[in-house]
Amino acid sequence: MKKLLTAGLFAALFSLPALAALDAGDVAPEFRTQASLAGKAFDFSLKDALKKGPVVVYFYPSAYTNGCNIQAHTFAENIDKFAAAGASIVGVSLDSIARLNKFSADPDYCAGKLVVASDASGKIAKSYALTVRDAVAGRKDSKGEDLDHGFAERTTFIVTPDGKIAATIGGVTPTANVEQALAVVQGLATKK
């Protein structure tokens, strides 16, 4: 019973709505960081990515945790639909780049299709006015490994090429988060 209660508390904690997050119309803070695609690290710049079209910047608590696994997999499954709408996607977490190299290449999650970026200090998440929580002692991921880093709240921002936030999505399930992000970018594509 205690394990069930603890699991429920963690689930509630990671699905809380974004109360103070930046909102539509706000300027999205520029960031540069190490990211990974298909297991290969590279330098990611939001400014550079926006030159190609809208960017879905989604913050998630941690690679290899239940909701995050579902969200990454759902984004990867729908990557072609986002690309057809002219949008790219970057997931941001407080995971190390080494951990993200594994996650980005994992065929069950990012499947080599989804860019994930490291915000090990939480600085990027905080610049988007997201809550960053400290690591929880003894918490393990879905592979049984210790989670030794903090967690940003699950919130997605759709950023337009002018650097403004078109929409902020939080407080929904990981799958609904992806579905809502796709609807926003498809709406932006039809407005062109």
Rank of each mutant, 00 (worst) to 15 (best):
K2C: 14
L4G: 10
F10G: 10
L13Q: 11
P17R: 02
A20M: 12
A21P: 02
D23L: 14
E30F: 04
R32V: 14
L37R: 11
A38G: 08
G39C: 06
G39W: 08
K40P: 06
F42R: 00
D48Q: 09
D48T: 12
G53P: 00
V55C: 01
V57G: 10
Y58W: 05
Y58E: 02
Y58N: 11
Y60C: 05
Y64H: 11
T65W: 00
Q71D: 08
Q71R: 12
A72T: 02
H73N: 13
I79N: 07
D80A: 12
A85E: 01
A87F: 09
S88L: 10
S88F: 09
V90S: 03
S96Y: 00
I97F: 00
L100I: 09
N101C: 08
A105F: 03
D106A: 04
Y109M: 02
Y109V: 03
A111C: 12
A111D: 15
K113W: 03
K113G: 06
V116D: 03
V116P: 04
A117S: 05
D119L: 05
D119C: 09
A120N: 05
G122K: 03
I124H: 09
I124F: 09
A129L: 12
A129C: 10
D134H: 08
A135S: 12
V136L: 13
R139L: 15
K140R: 09
G144C: 07
L147H: 10
H149A: 10
E153A: 13
R154H: 04
T156Q: 07
F157I: 03
F157H: 08
I158M: 06
G163Y: 01
G163I: 04
K164W: 00
I165S: 05
A166Q: 06
T168R: 15
I169R: 06
G170M: 07
G170L: 07
G171H: 14
V172D: 02
E179C: 08
Q180A: 08
A181C: 12
L182K: 05
A183L: 11
A183G: 01
A183Y: 07
V184G: 07
T190C: 03
K191P: 10
